[in-house]
Amino acid sequence: MPNILVVEDSPTMRQLISFAMRRVSNARVIEASDGVDALKKLSSQKVDLILADINMPVMDGLKLVSLVRGNPAMKDIPVIIITTEGAEEDKNRALSIGANAYLTKPIQTAELVKLVGTYVK
């Protein structure tokens, strides 16, 4: 059973993504409300995939990706960005920092589930 960390400040989106992951991917979902909260959970639990928003208080998603990529213990965890930022430059920036994939909101659950399936079994 894969462990998926959902980093999202909106409780509605967090619940929606977690719901989809539990129902479709049969995953164990760990929730975090911002980047700092995510780093705490990453240091204490094994995580197979991170789904992160960009715009969050305290620490945003891009900072989280760069910190994860700079940490030898976490650098190989795949990260999927889920954001309202639909501009091509935002996507390129996130991918250049080290995100593996980039999805824009409003998300299509089927598309998210398919993408998640390529990173976790």
Partner: peptide
């Protein structure tokens, strides 16, 4: 949140 995230 619903209007931003679910409707777009």
């Amino acid at each position: 949140e619903i209007i931003i995230n679910l409707i777009g």
